[in-house]
Design a protein around this nucleic acid. Sequence first.
RNA 1: GGCGGCAUAGCCAAGUGGCUAAGGCAGCGGUCUGCAAAACCGUUAUUCAUCGGUUCGAAUCCGAUUGCCGCCUCCA
Length: 489
Amino acid sequence: MSLKLYNSATRKKEIFNPMEDGKVGLYVCGVTVYDLCHIGHARSTIVFDILARYFRAKGYDVTYVRNFTDIDDKIIQRANLLKKEPKVLAREFIDAFYEDMGKLGVLNADVEPLATDHIDGMIEMTKTLIDRGYAYKTEEGTEGGDVYFSVDSYKGYGSLSGRNLEDMRAGSRVAVDDKKRHPMDFVLWKSAKPGEPRWPSPWGPGRPGWHLECSVMSNKYLGPTFDIHGGGRDLLFPHHENERAQSICANEGEFARYWVHNGFVTVESEKMSKSLGNFLTIRDALKRYHPEVLRLFLLSKQYRSPLDFSKKDVEGLQTGLVRIYRTFQRLNDLPGPDNGEKVPSNNVSDGSGQFFEKFCEIMDDDLNTAGALGLIFEKIREMNRLMDPESEGAISEDTLSRLKNDRAQILRAGNILGLFHEDPAEFFEQLAGPSTEVKNEDIDALVGKRTQARTAKDWAASDAIRDQLKEMGVILEDGPQGTTWRLDV
RNA sequence: GGCGGCAUAGCCAAGUGGCUAAGGCAGCGGUCUGCAAAACCGUUAUUCAUCGGUUCGAAUCCGAUUGCCGCCUCCA
């Protein structure tokens, strides 16, 4: 029962062994808050949300750190455009992050540090790097000029992302900057231009380079060596490579022991970009789909593979989720014998207690959420089979107890995946949306009329009413206990 | 130019050396129903891009070919 994770640094799946027994330190690069989050941010945030939940479910004491980058060129640019203070702009989008991710069921991390709260630490780290000969200042002796990390000074540079400096130099698109000693040198401290946010430093007023915050904050909250560092695939280079280089040189630790990177989301087979106009924000996606539909969709493929967001596929998953909730509703409606509503424990003689165990086995293989969903759907079908009327009418107490046990285990898995938290009736109402504004009394009246017609075997009248209700978005189901209705979703 | 990834049914997607290649959506046939709906049962890949190789045995390992995609510049 040990978790295997694909480690980007070694390009292999490895058994996860924590540094300290029973504890996990997890650092994930959060978002730069200059705009609304899109569906790709959602995937990344949900993947690590589930990783943290899963570790907790396995009994680990998790310290999950997820930062906000609240100072950077794009924020300054956007703030200027909107004539706002960068700090104010950043705050707005941090609030938006919580709102959107909250709707998607993302839990807060244990520590959610801001870059601007750690400027002192970044200045300290820059000093250390200069003192140790890993960094240099341009335009020495002036108030201008920037501080760069020297990639030539650290022999391990490039090992994380599997590159070497020669290759990068060869086909490089990096703009050559005469002030740099090597084209790949990256900025640690950037001197402020007029009107830009600034903090005092030994090298004049300025602001930190963007890789530095993660090095400082991970060190502060998790130490110079910690278990897992995560983020989007695109952060592997240069962000994580640079972070790692400066952290190892300054803090003398190993830095992250496992690197976990999630794959990208494309929209209708195209990479999201503002110029293509296919930049799908979480907000826009939530206008079309229920949060759990979105979440389920983002989990329908292994987290490392690219995922294409297409209307057709999301709607297919929605139909599947409806079936799951219908099963829950069916179980809720089941009269069954009253056994005091105690949820049976996990170990049931018929073996159904093994569901959660199997779920964990699958999840242990590099968080195989897609495989885990397959298991859930299998269990749903089995539960429906048990609830289908047999030759006898009533469901036995044994069967009911087994069903309740199954449901408890599916919900337990759902707790890790962040799914199945809705009440079935409410879920269907939310899916039907505001388009359905039919009054319950009106429906009941029509159903009553139809029942009369059916008793009289007036099938034409009965079917006419059924069609009328269908027009109104109501689907009828005639069962042995009479007619029930539900919203068409 | 450098580095990396992917290719499994109509669509989406697990499986990565050996039982009948999960699961979802869609379709078709059936059970149930007055007819439906829902649910269930059956069915839809003798085959995993193509060609070679390794092996008693490969979708799974190796090589080549083709086709997609990502990173190398801010990006989850």
